[in-house]
Write a protein that binds this DNA or RNA. Structure first.
Lengths: 226, 226
DNA sequence: GCACGGCTCCCCCGCCCGGGGGAGAAGGAC
DNA sequence: GTCCTTCTCCCCCGGGCGGGGGAGCCGTGC
């Protein structure tokens, strides 16, 4: 599906660099179903603009002088009724702020070095309610695959980013503090097998180690504390 | 009465000191009618374990780094259907927390320096529904051992049970997925210093590695997802 | 004065972890 | 049939992690 509906998707750009805003505007405005309805140079200006423009999506930079994208995301989601989707624009996929943005309630992530087709895909996806929860999705969108057109392709990527049953099972045991050897004993398989699953989980989640994977599991609601 | 029934009494151990857990396990497992079905290093991890293991009795330490036995007892009794009996394990018979534990709904008390026979007796009693409601009962169980404890020891326990400011700061960065080197850069200290803090945190939390520490942080509300 | 705890940094050492690559068996989809 | 995914297991290898010590500095408290 290319069009989410008859109405074009309205986007608010929030970035302190005019060049980045111009680039995003050019890329997005080239699409018939996307429309940039406003720009802001800092997170501090977001809330009144959101109230005024009612955008569907806010493309939010992380690092900004006055109010960063994390705080701005928090503020928008806390104070605005029917808040827009927040697409966090980041430079590095393993940026630690990604985790904070997750907690703040961001709906997706976008790498600045992503290609135009991937950028519009990301905007469409979050507009449709899809969550690009895991940085892995960002990496794959920006990664080896062409993504010339395609939601279909983007979805395929997301599908491959989804955990298999076994991987989810392993992640579940990881979130309970088990070591690879303990997981192997529990699942009655070899430790090398567990290592394979763990590596797959880390890769798909864009996590550097099991600790980050567990954090993502908590932040994404994969496991609920208490 | 030695046997409460045909089914052995299942016990969940909750103490931040592995040594205490090992000791309790050894003492209880020596009895044919008692069975240790699980261990936790902090009150924070109790609720999911209780839900999973459905123990008859929870031997709950009072002073724990993240979530103490009082709060953990309250949480279990408030959120779990058909909750287990809570046997509070304490070091000092006149511990002020004993009275709080009473109000929280604990079913019995056990002094750490009690003899093995008294420990198994206490577990059997609460399992049968008997309440060791009053500290007097604790004193009786403690027998002649009682009365010889100093405030210095109490303070040592207190101090050891809580994270220092720096340790809490380090734990906070751990819950954001940072490595030791990244934490060191953030705090502008050496990696060896961070390793010291991390080791202290792991020790106090009874966690084997940073992943378990992060899990405890989430389960205790030290960090809140979303 | 002294003692103690917290913060800092250092050493050595073992090992688990994670990356990279490969490979076979089983099952489903085309 | 072929292709693909999943699950399983194996190899080598480096590096981060965690345990065990110790040590100096600097506060507070006795």
């Amino acid at each position: 599906m290319i069009y989410a509906g008859l109405m074009p998707v309205s986007v608010l750009l929030v970035d302190d660099e005019p060049l980045v805003r111009a680039g995003l505007r050019a890329v997005l405005e080239a699409q018939p179903d996307l429309r940039v309805v406003g720009e802001a140079a800092d997170g501090a200006a977001v809330i009144p603009l959101v109230r005024e423009l009612r955008p569907d999506v806010v493309a939010m930079d992380v690092r900004m002088p006055l109010l960063d994208g994390i705080e701005a995301t928090r503020a928008v989601l806390r104070t605005v009724q029917n808040p827009p989707k927040i697409l966090v624009v980041t430079t590095f996929e393993n940026d630690e702020y990604v985790y904070e943005a997750l907690r703040a309630g961001a709906d997706g992530f976008l790498l600045k070095r992503a290609r135009p087709a991937e950028i519009v895909n990301a905007v469409r996806l979050v507009a449709e309610g899809e969550s690009l929860l895991f940085p892995a999705a960002v990496r794959r969108l920006a990664g080896e695959h062409g993504g010339r057109h395609g939601n279909a392709e983007a979805r395929a990527v997301l599908d491959r980013a989804a955990l298999t049953e076994r991987e989810a099972e392993v992640l579940g045991l990881m979130t309970r503090g088990l070591s690879n050897a303990e997981i192997a004993a529990r699942l009655v398989v070899g430790t090398e097998t567990v290592k394979s699953h763990v590596s797959a989980v880390l890769g798909k989640l864009g996590a550097r180690d099991r600790t980050q994977a567990v954090i993502l599991a908590y932040e994404s609601g994969f496991v609920a504390p208490g």
